[in-house]
Design a protein around this nucleic acid. Sequence first.
DNA 1: TACCAGAGGAG
DNA 2: AAATCCTCTGGTA
Length: 764
Amino acid sequence: MDGILIDIGHSQEGDQSYIDLYIRGKKLEVIHEAFDPYFYFDGPKPAGGGIKKAEKEGKWWKVTVASPSDVPKVREQLKKQGSIYEFDIPYTQRFLIDRDVVPLKPYHWQEGGGRVKVSEANVPYAPTTVAFDIETYNPRGMPDAEMDPIVMISTYGKSGRVYTWKDIRLPFVKSYSSEKGVIEAFLKDTSEDIIYTYNGDNFDLPYLKKRMEALGISEDTLGKVSIRAGMRGMKARIAGRTHFDVYRGMMFLARIGALKLPRYTLEDVYKEFTGKEKLDIDTKYLWKIWDSGTREQLEELATYSFQDAEATYELGEHLLPLYTALSQMINQMPFDVSRMSSSQVVESLLMKMAFKRGEHFPNKPGEGQFKARVNKPVKGAFVRQPKPGLHNDIAVLDFRGLYPSIIISHNIDPSTLNAEGCSSYYKAPTGQRFCKDRIGLIPEMLKRVTGKRAKIKVLLKKEKEGTRRWKQLYAEQQALKIAANSTYGYMNFARARWYSHDCAEATTAWGRKYIKQAAAEAEKRGFKVIYGDTDSVFLLRGGKSKGEVMKFLADYNDSLPEEMELEFEGFYPRGIFVTKKGGIAAKKRYALIREDGQVEIKGLEFVRRDWSQLAKKTQQQVIQLVLEGKAEEAKQLVRDMIGRVRRGEVPLDDYIIKTQLKRNIGKYASTGPHVRAAMRLKEAGEDVKKGAVIEYIVVEGAGKIGDRSYPVRILGSRKPDKEYYISHQLLPAVMKILSELGVTQGELLGEGKQTGLWRWAPGE
DNA sequence: TACCAGAGGAG
DNA sequence: AAATCCTCTGGTA
């Protein structure tokens, strides 16, 4: 049979455990595969209840049990007599690693003798996909699945529709007589392999399951829905399918830094990826529309719901190639992968590699060990003191994949660290020695990952952008990049199996050594180095040509280990490095202009969300003008803006300051302005929790800033404090830049027009 | 003026 | 459920 693996489960017959492989070929088939749960034991010959078999494998016992649920009690018994290993690898995940079965990959599956054989098959089979979204009746705020019905279910995919139990006459709406009719029709029609939801783990699926129970609807047509508590909220699994929660996927991208948004609502994320706005209704009053809405309102509700399903589908399709690639890279189901952290991805990859190398996995740390690791910080990167002011003709160079390349080049691994009796060693600046005789697990993994990624990038260049093949290759290199970039963090992650404080220390120490060395070599060539952070060097070309920069790069790279490379990042005609309060140049805060006029701003107020648009937009314009050499225009712009603020010509939105609540209101030791604003929101009856981004304005009046910080939504007739915004937002942001050119605040405020501002304007 | 708590960006 | 380096504001004494 040819097909792809879309889900994996487990069943039991007597004392034999089976893996259930859900294979989608022409139709969905389930293959039962006998597979014994096992773990390792170092101690006397194991005996006792629950043990099916114990045989010596190397120096340890391989202990086989009848069922995965037997593992906990057997391991607790044996733990008293010796050491146990690999006892906490989930049964189905263990199967995928051991048999090297790759999810969603076309195979020829051959059953026989109780053991399925997989071989490459060239069936061009792609999983079918659909998105769904439910709307619920909510007269008391949050709907209660015990009593509040589902009023609508929308689906979107190859086909799509809205199922509802009111008479709504739109082409994509199908009306039924009851909630039960709606759910049953939805279940009957929905047979796709991959089901996308937006936050379905925490809402749509648990809610649907409860409604099905309440209405006595069987799960058979969909597949058994199981809701389990995970580390980060609920996980909703549908047997025989892949439930892909797009919201989870987006949060993963956010955590690894591939996506950065102020909020991750479906509307916001959809706009970010597609540029399209979708119809948004205030779902707080959904129940009112359902009870007594006009025909138009009900149609709008159906349209909104349908668009939610469509947006979820589009985003799901966008993410699927990446999750397929990640899934295939580590031999784990997309369901699990989409709910992993980047460290879990790395760990899965290491387990797969370790199994191939015939090595055992270290155990996860206990709580005591975990705490000890957390309390052992690792010294990080080197940041060079910048040369402040305006500079011309800057060249930026940076190390490609600095930490991964260092780990490979110096064979940094827990197994090579200070290993005894090796013929030679790499010596870290911190004193650790890494054996050269045999490649370590982590360097080997990284070498394969970076090597494969380089090959894929070559293929990618030959492919036409946007094609199916291109998307697949792009996703594959993206998955490999995620693995490579997360590996250093993984080594230093306190819960990691392959944690090593010394390996992490050595890696960053070599990083500091190389970046300083690169700067020193550039200086030897006659370049002036003005800045550098972690893996980058900023040079002044001075009178030298671009060719001389490239020549320096080539020569310096010849001196580096093979896997390491200092790359050319770009030439910048101008750049400005600003000075901080104390009078010295600030690290991590600068702006550059590219040869094509594109401005890049780092660390300054403009890129920070906790500054008002007034300050941010003006700073951006000032930076642009200054880098274009138009300082006088920049000064005039600021004078004009001050005038507009004073005359009340600036829109209210430009005064909004956004700050995230990092903890719940009661947990703050000191209450800053955003906390005060959040407290006011709460008094007004809003649900304000940790994670909320508080939008507030500092209004006119007396007292501390906090006394005058009001959330936009309950602003009423209060007016922004113009002088606060001039002296504490606008001026600090623009003076950062202009004071580098010798401009004073007085020049901007206008001679002779002394105002009360002078007394409390921030000093220079 | 010195210090702390808190937020958020860079790489 | 990655870790570190760094800046800056507002509040307090």
